[in-house]
Design a protein around this nucleic acid. Structure first.
Lengths: 250, 250
DNA sequence: CGGCTGGTTGATCACTCTCAAGCGTGGTGG
DNA sequence: CCACCACGCTTGAGAGTGATCAACCAGCCG
């Protein structure tokens, strides 16, 4: 295994970028992309590595290109709460803020497309496409955070676990070719039991117990610790406590 | 008591507006304000009145001018979670979305400055000042939501109550003339016990018990049910579980 | 082999919820 | 004027969910 370090990956062409159509740069015209190419650089992290600590100086903002990162808050006595799960195309950092507000950690191997903060802020001021897309993404994140507040405040342990599995399943389904949602869905959990607990506001023991309970009840099948199969998405959704209809808003 | 209705207040001059320097219009130049005046109208609600139900068509966005409103989510079986507390200058609604995502309720008498959605969206496209300010406000709200996630997921009932009191005390102090923070702070709770419970992910009984406990321990003094005095803000902060230093970020 | 990490399971504890009774105030109607 | 009720709130007793403490297991690596 290689040493603990930041790896500068070779710069890639934005045209080839897997998150080209979803990230903060999604709305940019080719000339704007060219400008972004000037100030961008890639950075890689290994699974488990810390990207930045809360309070540290942060002289860049970034998009997650591949892999998964988390945002966590920690109290003085060690209690931890995950407050964000960053997937490919998600944005890290806050324009106008020079220090990180949360711990950012790579939970899988991670590649980020970074922009030096100052030039990025200047570009934001001059190209409305970026600011507009960032607003849209931030509003989406705010909605997701509020959904999560309902989960943290009011759902039972079983509902929390089911909701997390449903979210991962849904996202995984949207990444793979959009086959029928009918049949069984299979995916690998990108989180350890402890990370799941930090996300859900539970202890890892409770997570483990509820996973076992869902397995016992036939809601999920486990192959190893991480490989999950959902025989019936409907049955899983029944366990989340959410409205049956997704209730999608435009 | 007057009947249940929306009251159209007479249009006021933006120059006189109490939230002129903090709301979504804060950055606007006088000509932009003039444009906003064209599409704005005031609306008043009585304490307890519902502004809009989740899922309802929402053909406006708005700023809270005076009073307090809440955003809540409700599960099928009636469990409720507040996901936003809207104070003067806060923004309601989402550009680009035609239906409300949450129930919006006036917890005190409320005046909102509303903008018809379509014209507002057009103005956003043409005047970067508005979009920029909205981005800034949304990022602030996202931070607040994440702070709240820590509270909901990891804090004890006593810490939750203390945190809520601290938040209200801090805000109240910032509204009144900025006197010394040293002495006692006094304010009226704008929320019922039940609303506090919905905010904190607790039951109203637990809220009541913890309020009594804080009173017993001399952290707060109660005069009636709603009028609260904090003899020592430091002592209160000790109870919140938060870092002693506010940990403010720029 | 031994140690380490991640995970499971058991026993017990305690915090918060649930159910229930009761208080005080303000409003309404007889 | 008082009885009555509704509402917001408090307090108590008991129950239950999830936390805590602890033992143990499996896989992996040195």
């Amino acid at each position: 295994m290689s040493v603990h370090r930041d790896i500068r990956s070779p710069t890639q062409d934005c045209g080839e970028c897997p998150i080209r159509h979803r990230a903060v740069c999604a709305r940019c015209e080719t000339d704007e992309l060219a400008q972004l190419e000037q100030i961008k650089y890639y950075r890689s992290y290994q699974a488990g590595q810390t990207v930045i600590w809360s309070g540290d100086k942060m002289d860049f903002v970034a998009s997650v290109v591949t892999g998964i990162a988390t945002l966590t808050q920690t109290m003085e006595d060690g209690r931890r709460q995950m407050v964000g799960l960053l997937l490919p195309s998600d944005f890290v950092g806050r324009p106008g803020r020079s220090a990180a507000a949360y711990d950012v950690t790579a939970t899988t191997d991670l590649v980020m497309c970074c922009f030096r903060r100052k030039p990025f802020e200047e570009m934001m001021a001059s190209t409305p496409h970026i600011a507009h897309r960032l607003l849209e993404m931030t509003l989406d994140e705010l909605d997701a955070a509020r959904e999560w507040m309902l989960l943290l405040g009011r759902k039972t342990a079983r509902e929390k676990i089911s909701s997390l599995l449903a979210i991962i399943a849904r996202r995984d389904a949207s990444l793979k070719e959009p086959r029928a949602d009918l049949g069984a869905i299979t995916f690998d959990l990108p989180l350890t039991r402890e990370e799941m607990a930090d996300y859900l506001g539970l202890t890892l023991e409770t997570v483990s117990r509820q996973m076992s309970a869902l397995k016992r009840d036939g809601i999920i099948t486990l192959d190893g610790k991480r490989h999950v199969t959902i025989p019936s998405v409907d049955a899983l959704m029944e366990e989340t406590g959410d409205d049956s209809d997704g209730g999608f808003l435009v």
